[in-house]
C-alpha cells in the first residue's frame, strides 16, 4: 500500500488553498465566494491531517474535526446573510447595489 508522503499532501493543500483564495478575490457571485471560502477551509483541514501524519500526532486530526464543524457553522451564517440580502435586492453579484462606499 503506497502511503502519500506528508510533503506531497502539504503541497496539495497549498494548491487548494491558493485556488480558494483566488476564488474569493476574483469571483463576484456571492455563492461562489462562499464555496471558495469552503475550499480554503478544507485545504487547511488537509494540511492539518498531513502535519499530524508527519509528526505522528493526533492533534492534526482533532483540529480537522474542529475545522469541519466550524466551517459548517460559518457557512450557515453566511447563507443566512446572503438570503437576507437576496430578499432586499434580487442579485447575487457582490458589486451591484453596493451602497456603502467611500
Amino acid at each position: 500500500m503506497g502511503a502519500v508522503a506528508p510533503a506531497n499532501a502539504i503541497l496539495l493543500a497549498a494548491i487548494l488553498f491558493g485556488l480558494g483564495l483566488a476564488g474569493v478575490l476574483i469571483r463576484r457571485n456571492l455563492i461562489f465566494m462562499l464555496m471558495s471560502i469552503e475550499v480554503m477551509l478544507n485545504a487547511t483541514g488537509l494540511a492539518f491531517v498531513a502535519g499530524g501524519a508527519r509528526w505522528g500526532q493526533a492533534d492534526g486530526q482533532v483540529m480537522f474535526l474542529l475545522v469541519l464543524t466550524l466551517a459548517a457553522a460559518e457557512i450557515s451564517v453566511g447563507l443566512a446573510l446572503i438570503l437576507l440580502l437576496q430578499t432586499r435586492r434580487p442579485t447575487l453579484d457582490s458589486d451591484v447595489g453596493n451602497r456603502l462606499k467611500g
Binding site: P6, I10, A13, F17, G20, L21, V24, I37, M40, L41, A43, T44, A47, F48, A50, G51, G52, R54, D59, G60, M63, V67, E74, G78
Partner: peptide, 16 residues
C-alpha cells in the same frame, strides 16, 4: 471568513 481562513492556514503551516 477570509481572514479566519488565512489565519487557520498559518496555524496549519506552523503545526506542519
Amino acid at each position: 471568513s477570509l481572514a479566519s481562513g488565512l489565519l487557520l492556514y498559518g496555524v496549519s503551516l506552523v503545526f506542519g
